[in-house]
Nucleic acid binder design. Structure first.
Length: 527
RNA sequence: GGCCCCUUCGUCUAGCGGUCUAGGACACCGGCCUUUCACGCCGGUAACACGGGUUCGAGUCCCGUAGGGGUCACCA
């Protein structure tokens, strides 16, 4: 049996769409499952500008996700080049062959003439089909049209009867009437070729065995089969995946509708969490790339590739009625096209988030450190590279934070462990609530004395000391713990109080209590 | 509009004629735990779009209807 070879063919737009990731993943899984090859081909037939630059984020996205390609940009391969813009001579040869075999013709019509025919058909209420009025099948005809100042494109000469049949690996038997097809242009007057032609030629040249792509391409399939037939090429197997839909809708997910999606509460939450992290980093938000529809978003915020992959895997595919989590190996082993759904699946930000939580919790402390580290370095809370002390402190924070840190960027929500006392920001509301009255201030001052005497200054001892202290006074723990928290961390919420104090150490703790007391004391005096 | 496709809890899905008074996950609701937040634990609400067939029997097969969607470029 011929080896399984699949491909993903991004056009270098600069972005990797979440739906694209899903398509790429399925192609990758299918190839890996069958021990075949996964090829990356760049569909830049139309791109005259900055392919390199636009390609970079896409390839980085692939690398980040761990979807390695066997052939394609950077790695090359036996069928190089893998850029369509560099394969024009192949397409030219194909066009000539199609012309010779009568599967295509030179057409000297002007665009506005086609447009007129199209409009006339619409007006008459009949389906449009080009009259072939400016079709030139002989040199004499061509010369005559050319003498009128016309230039020629090459069109497919589609059959007017019969049906195109093929078996779709996801959808089953498909049937399209040839008469429905248009005489599509495959080559422009300037000699450049169009996508469908290039696509078929390349799929053959690269020996692609399975074309796994989004269902948007389903209706393009007959014309591609026609081209393949005209070229006398074998037809690959086709599998058309349902598209990924908008959250809470059945419409196709688009990267152009950020504003609309932000009206969806769950989507908005996902976005705002990410925007918050970027803000902490002091980066400006580029709306072009920073949106939860694109993988760049997730990388920037510190999501785990495993979470993204596992989530999109289940968008249109399932193994059975209970398996939710798949390691890379498990994905490869269990993936099959037979279990791909036919109906679109809508993108659910909340579910994605839950996968992220799951995988984050599976990380060891060392792994979490690596996820969090770039954020700390960027914001300058640790050196580049970090010192051993900084790393140990961060690991202590990570340990104490537990599952509170859900993405790499979430570490930025804990400035209290990194900034100097004087730079600690206080949440005014929390400060007022917990230290607004003289009694609580008094209690805090008294408890500070206890802390000052405490040795060793670690979480268990602090806890014991505080519990004994409140017991002596016959008051609840809540009367003091919140005051200490806000005084030392500046906030009303955070990780475990006792661990927090231990990480910060006695000196910092006492200094911050003093600082907080001064702050509320000053606030109480009229100016 | 033509052609094509899709339709099980809010969402992702299991289900390939009887085992379905429809299973799981996420979300949601209630309770427990609790120093905040988060987690965790226990429990709960919630779906076969509709109408006809076929069949002893239909979520599962067939046909309609409705709804949703994709696609109709000298874009990819």
């Amino acid at each position: 049996m011929a080896p399984v070879r699949t491909r993903f063919a991004p056009s270098p737009t600069g972005h990797l769409h979440i739906g694209g990731v899903r398509t790429a993943l399925f192609n990758w899984l299918y190839a890996r499952h069958h021990g075949g090859q996964f090829i990356l081909r760049i569909d830049d037939t139309d791109q005259q500008r900055h392919v390199e630059e636009a390609l970079k984020p896409i390839l980085e996205g692939f690398r980040w996700l761990g979807l390695d390609w066997d052939e394609g940009p950077e790695v090359g391969g036996p069928y190089a080049p893998y850029f369509q813009s560099q394969r024009t001579q192949r397409y030219q040869a194909a066009v000539e062959r199609l012309l010779e075999r009568g599967y295509a013709y030179r057409d000297f019509s002007r665009p506005e003439e086609i447009q007129a025919e199209r409009e006339a058909a619409e007006k008459a209420g009949v389906p449009f089909r080009y009259s072939r009025r400016w079709m030139a099948e002989t040199e004499a005809q061509a010369e005559r049209f050319a003498s009128e100042g016309r230039t020629a494109v090459v069109r497919l000469k589609m059959p007017s009867e019969g049906v195109c049949r093929f078996e779709d690996l996801v959808r089953g038997p498909m049937e399209f009437a040839w008469a429905q097809e248009q005489d599509h242009v495959i080559q422009r007057a300037d000699g450049s070729c169009l996508y469908h032609l290039a696509n078929v030629v390349d799929d053959y040249d690269f020996q692609i065995s399975h074309v796994i792509r989004a269902v948007e391409h389903l209706s393009n399939t007959p014309r591609q089969i026609f081209i393949a037939q005209g070229l006398d090429l074998p037809i690959p197997r086709y599998a058309h995946l349902p598209y990924v839909a908008e959250p809470g809708s059945q419409s196709k997910l688009s990267k152009r509708k950020l504003k609309k999606y932000l009206k969806h509460p769950d989507f908005r939450k996902l976005y705002e969490h990410g925007a918050h992290i970027l803000e902490r980093l002091g980066r400006t938000i580029d709306e072009e790339t920073f949106q939860p529809v694109l993988v760049e978003f997730y990388r920037a915020v510190g999501y785990l590739p495993e979470a993204i992959l596992n989530y999109v895997l289940l968008l249109g595919w399932s193994l059975d009625d209970k398996t939710e989590f798949f390691t890379r190996q498990a994905m490869i082993e269990s993936f099959s096209l037979e279990r791909v759904n036919k109906s679109p699946a809508s993108f659910d930000p909340v579910k994605l988030w839950s996968f992220q939580q799951h995988y984050m919790n599976e990380l060891t402390l060392e792994e979490k450190w690596e996820i969090v580290r770039p954020f700390l370095e960027e914001v300058g809370w640790v050196d580049t590279p970090p010192t051993l002390e900084q790393r140990q402190r961060t690991e202590a924070v990570l340990r104490a934070a537990g599952d509170r840190i859900k993405t790499g960027g979430d570490i930025l929500d804990f400035p209290e462990f990194y900034v100097a006392d004087a730079e600690l920001a206080y949440d005014e509301k929390a400060l007022k609530k917990r230290l607004g009255d003289p009694e609580s201030q008094q209690r805090l001052a008294e408890f500070a004395e206890v802390l000052a005497q405490l040795e060793p200054f670690d979480a268990p001892h602090i806890e014991t000391a505080m519990k004994e202290w409140v017991q002596e006074r016959g008051i609840g723990l809540g009367k003091i713990i919140h005051a200490v928290r806000v005084a030392v961390t500046g906030r009303g919420v955070g990780l475990g109080m006792f661990e927090a104090l231990e990480i910060l150490g006695k000196a910092t703790t006492l200094a911050r209590i003093e600082q907080a007391l001064a702050k509320v004391g000053a606030a109480q005096r009229p100016a």
